[in-house]
């Protein structure tokens, strides 16, 4: 009977629970048989706070933008972005949205696909089948498209954060590359609607 130290898996044992970070959740009294009473809690991640500056979507977006673990650089991009938004929107007096966080959330929301395509083999022929998309994959896809759109090379040299700001602004108004990708995918799903029954 050997107790081997797992190398590829979590350092936490299975008993450990994820930390609770939402203020409303924390203020609620614990129920009598709540597992949090009896089980230990994992340490909060380094970007976690309960302050007003913390937003789980922004934290996820930064993680997706990050290259080679350079979280600080990715973060600075986002910080600059917020400043950039404020400047550009002040110039346009008729701008509807002034809050960069709202712009960001709207952009994410607008890029979320409703349907995605999956490939299935039936009788030697591969069909492209449209299937509904789960909430977590919607979030992932929309963020990925936004990041990919900003990574694309353009004619003139532009900083990533410059491209990101224009991309987010465009996406919040249902324009831009990310939204176009979503629309293309929806069109593909629409074209293959005849195969929808292959889902089962």
């Amino acid at each position: 009977m050997f107790r081997l130290q797992s190398v590829r898996h979590s350092r936490y044992s299975v008993d450990y629970l994820d930390p609770t970070l939402l203020k409303e959740e924390l203020d609620k009294p614990l129920e009598k048989d709540d597992p949090r009473r009896f089980q230990p809690v994992k340490a909060a991640a380094n970007e976690h706070t309960t302050s007003c500056t913390y937003d789980p979507y922004v934290a996820k977006f930064i993680r997706m933008m990050m290259k080679r673990g350079q979280k600080e650089i990715a973060r600075r991009c986002i910080d600059r972005l917020e400043k950039y938004h404020k400047a550009s929107t002040e110039e346009e007096r008729n701008a509807i949205e002034l809050d960069p966080m709202k712009v960001f959330h709207e952009a994410i929301e607008n890029c979320k696909p409703l349907l995605i395509t999956q490939r299935t083999r039936r009788g030697g022929i591969t069909y492209t089948v449209p299937v509904p998309c789960s909430a977590s994959y919607q979030l992932f896809r929309s963020m990925k498209w936004l990041v990919e759109a900003c990574r694309e090379k353009e004619g003139g040299e532009r900083w990533f954060w410059e491209k990101l700001s224009t991309e987010l602004l465009a996406a919040s108004q249902n324009q831009g590359k990310g939204v176009r990708k979503k629309q293309e995918l929806h069109r593909l799903c629409e074209a293959n609607r005849a195969y929808a029954h292959y889902r089962w």
Partner: peptide, 12 residues
């Protein structure tokens, strides 16, 4: 404790 402030992060 619930917010994970009192746990030593064991990841190395």
């Amino acid at each position: 404790r619930l917010a994970g402030l009192l746990t030593r992060d064991p990841r190395m």
